[in-house]
């Protein structure tokens, strides 16, 4: 009732609405309950990562063999301890720093490369063949093998893991973007911009890219999940986070030996990964709907 009344009032209002696009997007995003839950999780995690020393009472890497393999809800260690007696809560909180940074860096770099290649390949027919063959080449390597190769060249460190994962994301991102560009560039509004004398750069960035956002956002959020998981896999293989660094994936692989005696060592970081992945996915979905001007605010 009240909502329709305000909408009607907005229509009556004479002056053109000065609402900026991002305000509209934010408003719509906040109407999506799942997306709000996801946003809360992400904000909490970022808070956790930033204020890690303030919300933990133990050093995440300090061993205490007297208190090893304590179960969940033990006194002083509400998430228990691992086989070296390290506090699992502290490790999860500090691990958020690593997982989020690696995920965000990897996805950002991957998107930069993939979107650029996809745009160029989709828009310029002449470049398409060359770019897509490079993409095929990257595709032909199994992902982990490619990442191992890159880390072998660059050396073992978390930033190199992020770079390796980003290179691994480039081909699929380029494919997805190219597909959208191919269909969008045939649209009449692109023809209209050409007839107005718009430069190729303007057409690509201002008219094709915004209309290809939906698949890109879905890809980015799904990739965020994959990136966190891949960091875990690489850490498991000894190429990512080096012990005793508290990295969620590494924690799972280390805890797997104690799966039966202390299941919380695998379950807790597993839940942390799952919640992160879930949060990014629902926020991504919400964002995709929110930036679509054709979706009604109601």
């Amino acid at each position: 009732m009240a909502e329709t009344a305000t909408v009607a009032a907005a229509n009556v209002k004479k002056a053109p609405s000065k609402e900026k696009t991002y305000q509209v997007v934010a408003k719509r995003l906040l109407k999506n309950k799942l997306a709000v839950i996801g946003l809360i999780i992400i904000v909490l995690q970022i808070g956790m990562a930033i204020f890690a020393p303030l919300i933990t009472s133990y050093d995440p890497v300090k061993q205490n063999l007297d208190a090893s393999e304590l179960p969940v809800f033990s006194e002083g260690h509400w998430l228990g301890t691992d086989n070296y007696g390290r506090d699992v809560w502290s490790r999860i909180v500090f691990g958020a720093r690593i997982s989020l940074v690696v995920g965000i860096v990897a996805v950002t770099l991957g998107l930069l490369g993939g979107v650029t290649l996809g745009l160029l390949g989709g828009y310029y027919k002449k470049l398409d063949g060359v770019i897509m063959r490079i993409v095929d080449l990257l595709f032909s390597f199994p992902g982990i093998l490619l990442a191992m190769l890159i880390i072998a060249i660059l050396g073992t460190s978390l930033i190199n893991v992020a770079i390796a994962i980003s290179i691994w994301s480039i081909p699929s991102c380029a494919r997805i973007v190219r597909g959208s560009v191919l269909s969008i560039k045939e649209k009449e509004y692109i023809m209209a911009m050409k007839s107005l004398g718009a430069s190729d750069f303007r057409i690509m960035v201002k008219h094709i890219l915004p209309n290809a956002f939906a698949p890109i956002i879905v890809f980015a959020t799904m990739r965020m999940a994959t990136a966190i998981l891949s960091t875990a896999s690489l850490s498991y293989l000894g190429l990512g986070a080096q012990p005793p660094t508290p990295e969620w994936g590494a924690m799972i692989s280390q805890g797997q030996a104690f799966m039966w005696s202390s299941p919380h060592l695998t379950v807790v970081p597993g839940i942390a990964i799952m919640l992160t992945v879930f949060a990014f996915n629902v926020v991504g979905d919400g964002l995709r709907d929110a930036i679509d001007p054709n979706m009604d605010i109601q």
């Binding site: 509004y189 107005l196 209309n211």
Partner: peptide, 30 residues
């Protein structure tokens, strides 16, 4: 600037993600 075109499909000839005021401003920006 001297030769322009009006397109057939009014639903397809405008960028759906651009406010029409900005779409028209863009002509002058260019």
């Amino acid at each position: 600037k001297q030769m322009q075109m009006i397109f057939q499909d009014p639903f397809a000839s405008l960028n759906p993600r651009q406010r029409i005021g900005h779409a028209l401003e863009e002509v002058f920006t260019m």
